[in-house]
Design a protein around this nucleic acid. Structure first.
Lengths: 226, 226
DNA sequence: GACAAACGCGAGCGGTCGCTCGCATTCTGA
DNA sequence: TCAGAATGCGAGCGACCGCTCGCGTTTGTC
């Protein structure tokens, strides 16, 4: 009995559950980082479905077998990528989606959120690829869904601090869906243009969102001296 | 010389050009219709990339070889489908995107266009699948691109009759892009809901578009007695 | 230095895909 | 009537995919 090793915990994984991380060397963590960066690059270039695991491994400079040393399957790569992306979003731009001071003019609040989210998307193009391409087979697109749901929740709380206090919960949710939709549609236009035209499209996102939300916000503080 | 048949025209096709239609029997035309309907069904269910030509043939009740009797490759199916869809759009809802009487209130004009386009999309779900899924390999997605470009052009002329007369051409184009983006984003939300909630989202599309366009239109006729 | 575990490789397995080919059947026009 | 074109079939080819497996190498620990 006492001869047995102290850690009999073999990596158990449920059907879709997370296996507890096995013993990993620094080399392994580096490889994982390489593979995720390569996957981001390939996903970005071709989308999730068309991206082949062999191409990801090649891009990372390792063999297919090495890739599967660290990820159980292709979907897990996208999920892990999505998790880290969302972690980055929380860390770097968490305050972008926090409730705002109701005294802030709507246009300024929208502009700030759009500017920060746009910057994040420019820094991490794969975020757009994972958000926009619901082409994952099997029905459940965990990475995409987690990103989407999390963003929606944050927008809802943000809207809760902007909209008229009596607004119905279902209305807030619907408004959040529409705002996210407008932003995603605008982002596609922003990313497909450059330079001055790109800036013009960013302004159009702000215009569209501001004008859409304006009749919905509580105007009690807009013109305090009115 | 006079012995030669009157129609020596063999089906010549350039790299991406259209071959002139070979001699076809009524049977063939029926098969083509069957195959296109089956393709619409399969594209709708799984998207273009994931749709297999064998599945399309099976859905149509014919063999893979028969499918390739009428279409040179998979992409040609989507292109022909897109062409016929656009033809239907022109025929059935052409007037939906025609220039409107400037005296019409903006909200009414937007509501009319959105209602008609939404009805068309409900009748032809594959339209949304082809518009929204830019997952076609090879870079050029002719069917998708043709639909997109044609719709954009129609929206531009429609906007030209609504916007303030002095509006810059580039601004009109940009506004058309944004409007189409908002509509497509809203359509995705509409199609993913049902019943009362679906109607609510349709109303939100109208709200978003109306409020976005309102500051841009010439207000010279809005309140004739103002 | 010895041993086990983690890492790394790449040929290749089982499967699906787009598409072909040889051949049988049905239709058309003279 | 009958030659030839159009239609129809379905096994299967070649390519690629996600992923595995056996085996050699590196690393951490005692």
């Amino acid at each position: 009995m006492p001869d047995k090793p102290e850690k009999p915990e073999q990596p158990e994984d449920t059907a879709t559950g997370r296996e507890q991380p096995r013993r990993r060397q620094a080399r392994g963590e580096r490889r994982i980082q390489q593979l995720l960066e390569a996957a981001a690059s390939v996903f970005c270039a071709t989308g999730y479905t068309a991206a082949s695991t062999n191409a990801i491994a090649r891009e990372a400079g390792v063999s297919p077998g090495t890739l599967y040393q660290f990820f159980p399957n292709k979907e897990a790569i996208a999920i892990e990528l999505g998790d880290r992306l969302m972690h980055d979003l929380r860390d770097t731009y968490g305050e972008a989606l926090a409730p705002v001071d109701p005294a802030t003019p709507l246009a300024d609040a929208v502009a700030a959120v759009v500017d920060r989210l746009t910057a994040f998307n420019t820094d991490h193009p794969v975020f757009f690829a994972l958000m926009h391409g619901p082409d994952m087979p099997g029905g459940i697109t965990e990475a995409h869904d987690a990103l989407h749901t999390s963003l929606l929740g944050r927008i809802e709380t943000l809207l809760a601090s902007l909209l008229a206090p009596g607004t119905d919960k279902a209305d807030v949710t619907r408004t959040a869906h529409v705002c996210l939709g407008i932003y995603k549609a605008g982002l596609e236009l922003v990313l497909s243009h450059e330079g001055t035209e790109q800036q013009a499209y960013i302004q159009e996102i702000k215009n569209a969102l501001t004008r859409y939300l304006d009749p919905l916000v509580g105007h009690h503080l807009d013109q305090p001296a009115g």
